[in-house]
Write a protein that binds this DNA or RNA. Structure first.
Ligand SMILES: [Mn+2]
Ligand SMILES: [Mn+2]
Ligand SMILES: [Mn+2]
Ligand SMILES: [Mn+2]
Lengths: 158, 158
DNA sequence: CCCAATATGTAGCTTAAGCTACGTTTTAGG
DNA sequence: CCTAAAACGTAGCTTAAGCTACATATTGGG
């Protein structure tokens, strides 16, 4: 193997995907992994501001379970990417771009969580898994999830 | 905020989780992220060996869409963690530990993919999303997925 | 109104994952 | 049976995400 130029490869059952298709899929997962942390930060910042009025770097660090320099480092990345600003001793704020991202991320988080619960996943496992899964859910999947939930809700209501 | 020691915080609707609970969830997601790559490698190695007889570093690199030094680096990590061995120009091989991990990972991958398809996610999106989601699915969720699929299959068969 | 507790900032390190540019070793086809 | 292509290896760089250890700055309660 590895030397012959893989001629055509008819898709028989259980066969591997083509190299190109598989590389595309892995590439998407890599991209998602690299934006996952940004998404978690903007989502958490939005949640903190909504429910407590402010998002302090220290609080963010504690809720994420990381050291405060780590949080400050990542917040610096948020600033570089024009997602957030900071006023020392006043908190972290989202830019327009950051708020737009936060809205999408929060909606996705809720939807993923609801689907897991609807599938019968116990609450705490659903909450924990959703925190990782959410970053890998495409628009196509979101659409399917939302349709599925509409179905469940109708069934439950009848 | 951030100064008062958060006294009790009764869980009203839409409230944030406790700091401890949230930190635990984020911590799990971080752990999953850090093992995701190892899992993808052992899974891919197992797939390649099964369907082509061998897993060459170059092929692994191509299928992952990374440069071959990147693949070689990560394979070095697999060796360090006692998941694989390599024989130059002969391919990469899984240790017992590696094969055990591969079995679990492949089963999980199949299950996640089937659930996405059962929920109505289009094939290619399901394949791509599964590649990322699989690393964040707990045993509890796997169990729920498997029960859900049994239900769907019965419904479909009737 | 001052000072200790809290919050923030900086320095400097580690590991992982990615890259390009070269260099070396095998292998297989003519 | 020889040599060019393919496979493999190494060096050296970058960025991100994590850490600890200190240093500085604010603030609120007494
Ligand atoms: Mn998350
Ligand atoms: Mn989230
Ligand atoms: Mn994967
Ligand atoms: Mn997989």
């Amino acid at each position: 193997m590895s030397r012959k130029a893989s001629p055509a490869r008819k898709p028989s059952p259980h066969a591997l995907p083509t190299e190109q298709a598989q590389a595309r899929r892995f590439g998407k997962a890599r991209t998602a992994r690299s934006t996952a942390i940004l998404e978690d930060y903007v989502e958490l910042i939005a949640d903190l501001i909504e429910s407590t009025g402010e998002a302090r770097a220290t609080d963010i660090a504690r809720r994420l379970g990381v050291s405060h320099p780590t949080a400050i480092n990542t917040i610096a990345r948020l600033k570089r990417e024009d997602l957030a600003t900071a006023r020392p001793y006043r908190g972290i704020f989202l830019t327009e771009k950051g708020e737009a991202l936060a809205r999408r991320v929060r909606a996705r988080h809720r939807l993923v969580l609801e689907v897991l619960l609807a599938l019968g996943v116990p609450k705490e496992a659903a909450e924990a898994d959703a925190e990782g899964i959410e970053h890998h859910v495409s628009e196509a999947s979101l659409k399917a999830f939302s349709d599925f939930l509409k179905g469940s809700r109708i069934k439950k209501a009848s």
